[in-house]
Write a protein that binds this DNA or RNA. Structure first.
Lengths: 380, 380
DNA sequence: CTGTTAGCGCGTTCAG
DNA sequence: CTGAACGCGCTAACAG
């Protein structure tokens, strides 16, 4: 627990000015190699760590990254945050967590965005599943503030975005059911206001089309991503006349699939015997339910990781531009919410689509082995 | 998206000095009520938000709270962090998340503590399940740095601590099994190096004692809190000669109970028919497994909330003391890792023990109704 | 009750 | 290649 040292201390110990020390620490050129070496040694010996606070104040840029997540009740959030935290841990940045609870949601999601912006604490924001606040995030981006979105975007894409390849994932899932011989395959959609729901639906349609099977409107129901809506949809679907009833259901989320499981359990409907079921997300508990759920795995951790990587590159680039434009104290730019520092429309926003993978378990009729022992690999 | 204003701007608009504005913002006394009113109005109108960065630098205290969590693979972490985030959201503080991934763990958990301390970014730390790094946290506390622990402490208690009443929880669980008529009740312990494991064991023993039942060493096995060790323990217990085999198992964590479920499933052992099972934690997925798990519910969200509350009170108190002691620029105290600002041994460290509650589900033999529809209430 | 004066620790400019 | 000087936005001591 060494005594906290400042740059001045190091400068004194090295016999140089603090300016030089600062230059070394920021990897500036124009420093004598010997001096640089010596300073680095002392910095290491003394265990010197610069104050992020002061650096932020002086340099105008902070070393903090904001991560905005909705309520932790969504089961994928922990996985995503895990990827984020681990990635940030490997950088010189720190992670500031902003979460929307029910109260902040009431007051309007814009509030928290304004708060983030006005405190000027973070250098950029990674917004996870922004949902309703997505439009605020977009505004941020248009004002030149570094922002990246995970797993929820508007159409057309306006903001750098990381997500899963929802259409392919859905396509694979339905293909699998088709390969098992199913022909009447229902789909419980997520809310259609989300692009990911529409993409999953598109994948579902595509797979059916390829098999020459028409999309039956009665077999497609819009849910709300949660268990309750899945249960309702199951009830509707399984109350259809026998000849119209689906033999398989592709749910747009694992939680909705749980709703199907619940209804089937109540009604004594055997899954997968009488009804095959596939979910989407591969949240940890889907390996635990009975029957264990076949589902499309989203690479949540990797999404978090890539999100941070992209955010950092954007921040760096925006620093670069600021540096080039600057003449004298042009830092007033920043106070104006960094307005129009660059033309965001220059290049099309970055979009990264990560591959999904189908996790086959018992719920669609395949034989399952030792499900519980697979807990580790699934939930990590 | 109003233009970012500084205290000086407000001072100019209000026709007073920035000092006065600062005083109003920090709720200092000695300000004319009218002036205060006027300043507050302007602050609100202009949407002024002070810079936490600058305030931290100047005042020597930051408005950031560090939260140290182990890997997100532990299923209760999200719940705890949720409580933490929500509580911090209601204060003027921000949440900085430090997480231990496998790499940081390798390099020694002390590193991250040193890092936290030397960056001097946060005003205090709430450490969740510190495990091996617990001793580092204790050292922090002894140096006068505000620290609170959640759910893992050393014996004797050295640091302010929030946790569940493990002994009572275990006692209740075993009592329940006894009430159901079980007499040969096994216990799969958590690692005995943790106080919580020892307390749960104590509750187990206490319940048996009250019924005049001796504690059989063969029925007590130490696990590692995870699923694999639970499976191993189940195998050992259920391989006992028929007359020594337990009719019920009380597992020290839900994950270990999952291991029991897995082994039982493999072996075709009916739960609860041939074996009753109770877990500990009430993590969300325990409502989803089949049979649904009876378990002792820890109030994770509340633990997070109380943790922050206690941490804030400690920070405030330490600021107070610093203020009283200070003569001139005595801020050097802080640079010395805030060493010995107060006598930590003055009062016994605060310990808050929150009540648990038994969640009765199918795994111990009670009739279960509509398990899936209870997902919401359990996982929130 | 209020304003003036010094910094907090660092980044950046400008003149050597 | 180097150092002195200034300022980031705010708080705290000291004198009115």
């Amino acid at each position: 627990m060494a005594r906290k040292r400042t740059i001045d201390d190091i400068a004194r110990l090295a016999g140089v000015s603090k300016t030089t020390v600062s230059r070394v620490l920021n990897n500036k050129p124009d420093v004598d190699p010997n001096t640089r070496e010596r300073i680095l040694r002392i910095v290491k010996e003394e265990g010197f760590v610069p104050s992020a606070t002061a650096a932020g104040l002086a340099g105008g840029r902070s070393h903090l990254l904001g991560v905005l997540v909705p309520s932790f009740t969504w089961p994928m959030i922990p996985d995503i945050v895990c990827g984020i935290a681990e990635t940030i841990g490997n950088t010189a940045y720190e992670l500031v967590l902003y979460s929307l609870n029910d109260k902040t949601r009431e007051n309007g999601e814009g509030d928290i965005i304004d708060h983030i912006l006005s405190t000027n604490l973070v250098a950029g924001i990674l917004a996870v599943l922004p949902g309703q606040s997505s439009k605020f995030v977009i505004r941020l981006h248009q004002h030149g503030f570094p922002v990246v979105l995970i797993d929820d975007q508007d159409d057309p894409p306006l903001v750098p975005w990381i997500g899963a390849d929802n259409q392919c994932g859905a396509y694979d899932a339905v293909k699998h059911l088709l390969a098992l011989g199913h022909r009447r395959i229902a789909h419980i959609q997520g809310p259609m206001k989300y692009v990911c729901s529409r993409e999953r639906y598109e994948g579902y349609c595509q797979a059916l089309r390829e098999h020459g099977i028409p999309v039956e409107p009665t077999l497609v129901i819009e849910g709300a991503f949660d268990t309750a809506s899945g249960r309702d949809a199951a009830q509707t679907l399984l109350s259809l006349p026998e000849d119209q009833r689906p033999t398989a259901i592709f749910a747009g989320s694992d939680l909705m699939a749980y709703g199907v499981l619940a209804f089937a359990e109540e009604q004594g409907i055997d899954i997968p015997g009488e009804l095959a079921l596939v979910g989407f997300d591969a949240i940890g508990s889907s390996a635990l339910v009975r029957p264990a759920l076949t589902t499309v795995k989203q690479p949540f951790q990797e999404m978090g990781q890539r999100g941070i990587e992209v955010l950092l590159s954007i921040i760096e680039q925006s620093d670069q531009q600021r540096f080039n434009v600057r003449s004298g104290y042009a830092r007033d730019f920043m106070r104006l919410s960094r307005a129009n520092v660059d033309e965001p429309a220059n290049a099309p926003p970055l979009r990264i689509r990560l591959a999904t993978s189908l996790v086959v378990r018992a719920s669609c009729g395949m034989r399952q082995r030792s499900p519980f022992s697979s807990i580790k690999s699934v939930s990590r």
